[in-house]
Design a protein around this nucleic acid. Structure first.
Lengths: 152, 152
DNA sequence: GTCTTTGCAAATGATTTGCAGCCTA
DNA sequence: TAGGCTGCAAATCATTTGCAAAGAC
């Protein structure tokens, strides 16, 4: 069976890059933390646990490479750091995010919510859409509940 | 008649801040360049033309202040800099952007495209939306035309 | 061997902060 | 005169780059 790593390896090869141990360790960390939205520093610390000799610069270079190959998406929630998110396999579009202003949690929405909107934009603005970024800022279900409990 | 500056002045006062000459100069630059998406450095250079003694730190501090008061929105298109956008008066929601991957131009969409989408998100994810960020990356009408001309 | 990739340290660039002086209530 | 506000310079933080050594084909 072809694993996810195998497929990423192929993608690298077809762009004439190698899956070095460092790159593999980095990809594994991303796979094992798919739900999180790790910064380069986060990834570095996690990779370091398995491969202590790795350098931060290598992590940055790998993440940049993976971004180029569209294996990951680089996102920015407005705090000063870039975060890296594995692209869902087969997903045509970048997924969306709900960022909680209370607790900072980030929830992913994989469903494509923008089909109709993109049609309108392409038609009315004559803009050829290649990608999108949609983030909602607000209060997550958890924090809403906490708030209403506090009011009791 | 109450000008836009007057209203911003009131907003500052009601949060017990003053509209100092430096702050006023900064706001004026933002008003005069509403269509652009200026970085702090951009704002600094423009303010410097009128008030050469101003410091970059003051511009940063002013922009931060205006962001807090929701007079401007701080946005990030993925290049390493924050940009500042005057919030449209009366606009309930932050407007959207089309970023051209060819020429880097940024077009604003003031229309609210997300009404339906927000309803879905609030209902299905129990997420109380306070704000949103929507950016499309693609090719603007101009660059599309240039490309098809080159192919001739 | 040649070309790619790496780790380290130094460089860069955006943004923030410490602080002494300034201005205004 | 006290506090907010400013300009400057130094500090910080994320990210990038130069370079010599190490590794892959």
């Amino acid at each position: 069976m072809e694993t996810r790593i195998d497929r990423i390896k192929k993608q690298l090869h077809s762009a004439s890059y190698k899956l070095t141990p460092q790159r593999e360790a980095t990809v594994r960390v991303l796979l094992e933390n798919e739900e999180d939205h790790l910064s380069a520093e986060d990834v570095y610390l996690l990779v370091k646990e398995k491969a202590p000799e790795i350098g931060l610069a290598t992590v940055y270079r790998t993440l940049e490479l993976l971004t180029e190959l569209k294996v990951v998406d680089k996102i920015n929630f407005g705090d000063g750091v870039s975060r890296y998110d594995l692209r869902k396999e087969g997903a045509e579009h970048f997924h969306h995010h709900l960022v909680c202003m209370e607790c900072g949690s980030v929830t992913e929405i994989v469903e494509d919510l923008l089909g109709d909107v993109e049609e309108i934009v392409e038609r009315d603005w004559k803009f050829k859409i290649k990608d999108h970024r949609l983030t909602f800022h607000g209060i997550c279900a958890n924090c809403q509940e906490k708030q209403s409990n506090n009011e009791k």
